[in-house]
Design a protein around this nucleic acid. Structure first.
Lengths: 138, 138
DNA sequence: CATATATCCTATAGACATTATAGAGTATAC
DNA sequence: GTATACTCTATAATGTCTATAGGATATATG
């Protein structure tokens, strides 16, 4: 399940991608347009800034703006920052790998094997969808 | 992320699929072989019994056994019982659908659209993998 | 310089789900 | 009738997610 944090983060990035990158957008505006608690969104945008997706400007006329071209931002990258591992089990994660306590040999594990398949499929979607493609509405 | 409950449940079913269906296997045996807390496994097997995957027998020589042919059991069905929705957002779930509070029109939502893709891909794996295929080790 | 604006940052409350255990009850084999 | 093994409900322990509070800091403007 996708956390609200990730969902809100994606929606905010999506909103920013539709705006002129030269004009900062205030948290309150995104919060109102996307129906997201302002304080919660504040912390989400902050972490997107710290991880290099967003720039910010303080004071009047301030706000947030995309640092990169939406073409250059993959949903996978955003997902990993806000949600964490894309894999469903840590023993199959590329970026957040951990061994399982219960498995003696993970290569003998059926769950492991299946979850590699799921990971690869999900990854192929998230890695190959840029923010630009993401924002295109039906 | 896959919960331990689901992971343990899949491993237990996998273990049972390798055994003779006529001979019940005790919780303690599966628990020991798969390194799972016995009491926790107890509750997992109980719910797999109540949902029609397993049969059980009490008393000496008792235990759990598969009710169906491993060919007839899909991982998707097990997943839905133990984990819940396969979809990453409720608004995209086939079996556990819920509307989002923050979306006015979910068909205009980028997250919705993307998560349908992810769901369909994951689904195609989980629906098309039977317990029989699942147990085959490398 | 003073003021309003808007982000920055840390801490924490509140709610909820997950994981695990306890312990008494029930059916069965021998 | 005794040991065995599942049944069932309750609950403890832990952790995570969501959200808010409140003061600090930087900037635009006149």
């Amino acid at each position: 399940m996708l956390s609200r944090k990730t969902k809100y983060g994606l929606k905010a990035l999506s909103y920013l991608a539709k705006q002129d990158r030269d004009i900062p957008v205030q948290i309150s505006v995104i919060s109102a347009k996307e129906n997201i608690s302002q304080k919660f969104l504040e912390s989400i945008l902050l972490s997107l800034r710290k991880t290099g997706f967003l720039g910010s400007k303080k004071g009047k006329g301030g706000g947030y703006y995309l640092l990169k071209d939406p073409k250059e931002i993959t949903i996978a990258a955003v997902y990993r920052v806000l949600e964490g591992p894309i894999a469903m089990v840590p023993c199959v994660s590329l970026n957040f790998y951990e061994t399982c306590e219960d498995c003696e040999d993970e290569h003998q594990c059926s769950v492991h094997k299946l979850m590699i398949q799921v990971r690869d499929n999900t990854l192929s979607i998230l890695e190959n969808t840029s923010l630009e493609e993401f924002v295109v509405t039906v």
